[in-house]
Design a protein around this nucleic acid. Structure first.
Lengths: 226, 226
DNA sequence: ACCATGTTTCGACAGATATCGTAGCGAAAA
DNA sequence: TTTTCGCTACGATATCTGTCGAAACATGGT
């Protein structure tokens, strides 16, 4: 991919809005993306074709439905990284406090919540920090059991286990990669967090509040900020 | 700045070429940029006006001459970071071995040379590595004296002393910031390196070869690769 | 077979963009 | 002052882009 291709992809309000929606990590249908970008379905369709040409997204056909996704998480990471480096605003996202507080960064958690989880895992000695990645120090810790995360299984994947990802709102590294994704999936599956239907923000449920306080000792002060 | 503005800036072949040229760190006149982007002076002028509007570049008036520069090094860093994350090709730069080997990344050295210098400084215990920056461990080391670098003076600047910068060709952090810049300036001033007139690559001179081998013990194998 | 639903294609149009020739401008040099 | 040089502004033009209405197209349900 060439620099100007990336530029062309994000260089239009509507396409930027579409990509920003997809950074949420959910696969979304064209009509939903049109709604989010505030354009007609036809127009969205043409933008989607452009983004597909540029190899930024692909479509997953499920019966009569077509869901669009980013081709890979590098693209999400790159956009977040860019936003943090250049102190970019993200015009079309109402940059709500919800979004700042907790959101999906493709397939893992970012914002105050993502960073807090990372920090607590480091302080508890579950994770350690390398230059560009985190590493698991205490693989026997009860967190992994509670979240039903099979580290061996994750380790066998080709994807990096726990690279650092820096987001625009906090500018502090948080856990990404297959571990970051596994944490987010598990929290969602166990109904500790709930995705917003509007955007990529998430809400901590009552159950999640208790888990995060008891198991990770995230302070109530932080948790109540939601 | 908004994401789509950055996109618009780099989203056109000619503008991308102009920015890539300016990442070299030198201030360049419009005609030179037109030549590099292979467009007429008038066309270049309009692109330059666009880039100025978008706050990517500014013009420094020197008598009858007008030199364009990037507004700050963050923009250079962001583009290099983007290139490394997305494995972007940089279409218009002949990605020559020279460029891969040693080049200016705005105001500090990147490529094999930039990385080698950084690694040797780390191995010699002159620098240490933090998460996102390097730190000076042995400020009394003779390297600083030889390069006439006044660390106290650098420390007083508002700019970060030695942040890590990751470039597209090596994908390994090298020293940027005011220290990175000071090293590059000094090497150039002492005629240990010479800038190319064509692009942002640099050549190591005979004097530089000797210095890098003697003082930093960079292996001949690496130095001969130039 | 037909319909309902969601998506893409086609066609048209307005508006933006890229390009360059020509002319004008400003600063130094003659 | 006049000339020279480089750059920008203006204007014309061709092209590209974004947009949407209408229609065509799939696919799964009725």
């Amino acid at each position: 991919m060439y620099l100007e291709d990336f530029g062309k992809a994000v260089g239009h309000k509507s396409r930027a809005a579409i990509l920003l929606a997809l950074i949420g990590g959910k696969a979304l249908p064209a009509s939903e993306l049109a709604y989010r970008a505030k354009i007609s379905n036809q127009t969205a369709s043409s933008h989607l074709a452009i983004l597909e040409d540029l190899n930024m997204i692909f479509v997953r056909q499920c019966g009569r439905h077509r869901y669009y996704e980013l081709v890979d998480h590098d693209i999400a990471d790159a956009i977040e990284a860019l936003a943090s480096k250049l102190k970019l605003g993200l015009r079309d996202e109402k940059v709500s406090d919800h979004l700042r507080y907790a959101r999906f960064c493709y397939d893992h958690l970012a914002g105050v919540l993502g960073v807090s989880i990372t920090i607590r895992l480091l302080e508890k000695g579950v994770l350690g920090a390398d230059t560009d990645t985190f590493k698991v120090v205490d693989s026997q810790h009860s967190v992994f059991e509670k979240l039903e995360i099979d580290l061996e299984c994750l380790g066998r994947k080709r994807r990096l286990l726990a690279p650092k990802c820096i987001d625009w709102s906090e500018r502090v590294p948080h856990v990404a990669g297959s571990l970051g994704a596994a944490i987010a999936v598990s929290l969602e599956k166990q109904k500790m967090i709930e995705r917003s239907k509007e955007d990529r923000s998430v809400k901590i449920t009552r159950k999640g509040y208790i888990f995060l306080e008891r198991e990770l000792n995230i302070s109530r002060e932080i948790l109540n900020n939601q």
